[in-house]
Lab assay of single mutants.
Amino acid sequence: NKFNKEMRNAYWEIALLPNLNNQQKRAFIRSLYDDPSQSANLLAEAKKLNDAQA
């Protein structure tokens, strides 16, 4: 399933972002599970926040 693969990839990328705190990571990951079709958008948002907090 395409969404499962995208979701799994996004999950690990988000989990490993160095500048997000655990609460932020959990919120993004919860959103991934709520709507796997938004994986790419959620990952992009997480990366933006990660960069902003660098």
Rank of each mutant, 00 (worst) to 15 (best):
S31L: 11
A10R: 05
Y33A: 04
N1Q: 08
K48E: 13
K25N: 01
L32T: 03
D35A: 05
N19F: 14
S31V: 08
A54S: 11
N21F: 05
E13N: 09
Q24M: 05
E6C: 03
I14E: 00
W12Y: 14
K25D: 00
A15S: 14
S39D: 02
Q23E: 15
L17M: 13
R26N: 13
S37V: 09
N50G: 03
I29G: 03
N41I: 09
P36M: 05
A15H: 15
K47A: 07
Y11V: 15
L16P: 01
P36T: 04
K2E: 14
L16E: 07
E45Y: 10
A44T: 12
M7G: 03
Q53V: 11
L32H: 01
E6W: 03
A27Y: 12
A44G: 13
L32N: 00
Y33F: 14
N9V: 15
I29P: 00
R30W: 05
A52S: 07
N21S: 12
L49S: 04
S37F: 11
Y33L: 07
N4C: 03
A54P: 10
D51P: 01
P18A: 14
D35L: 05
Q24Y: 02
L20Y: 00
N4P: 07
D51V: 13
K48Q: 03
Y11W: 04
N41T: 11
L42M: 07
Q38T: 07
E45D: 14
D35P: 01
I14P: 00
N22Q: 13
A52V: 09
A15C: 03
F28Q: 01
A15W: 13
A52N: 09
R30S: 13
M7L: 14
A54L: 10
L17Q: 05
K2C: 07
E45G: 03
I14K: 00
K2I: 13
N41M: 14
Q38M: 15
L49R: 06
Q38R: 04
D34H: 05
A10N: 12
A27Q: 09
A10Q: 03
Q53F: 10
Q38P: 02
E45M: 09
L32G: 01
I29F: 13
L20K: 00
N50K: 01
M7D: 02
Q23F: 06
W12K: 15
S31Q: 12
N21E: 11
A27V: 08
L32P: 00
L42Y: 07
A52M: 14
N50A: 03
L16F: 12
A54Y: 11
W12R: 15
I14C: 01
L32S: 01
E6Q: 07
L20I: 10
S31H: 14
A46F: 01
K48L: 10
N41K: 13
D51E: 14
E13R: 10
N19V: 03
K47E: 02
Q24C: 01
L20R: 00
D35S: 10
A27E: 14
A54D: 13
N41G: 08
S37R: 07
L42P: 01
A10S: 07
A40W: 11
S39V: 09
A15M: 14
L16N: 15
N22V: 13
R26E: 08
I29Q: 15
Q24D: 04
A46M: 01
D34P: 02
N50D: 10
R26G: 10
E13V: 03
Q38H: 12
Q38Y: 08
Y33E: 04
L49Y: 06
K2F: 12
A54V: 15
L49F: 06
A44C: 02
K47P: 00
Q24I: 05
E6K: 04
L43E: 02
D35G: 05
P36R: 04
L42N: 03
Q38W: 08
I14R: 00
L16D: 08
S39T: 12
A46P: 00
I29L: 06
L49Q: 07
A40T: 09
W12V: 12
I29Y: 13
R8W: 08
A27R: 09
N19W: 05
A10G: 03
K25M: 03
K25W: 02
F3G: 08
A40Y: 08
N19M: 13
N21C: 02
N41W: 09
L17W: 03
K5Q: 09
K5L: 03
N9A: 15
E6M: 04
N50H: 02
N9S: 10
A15I: 15
K25R: 10
N41R: 08
N19I: 02
K5S: 07
A27I: 08
L17S: 05
N1H: 04
L43R: 09
Q23I: 14
S37N: 03
S37Q: 08
D51I: 13
K25L: 04
P18Y: 05
A40I: 10
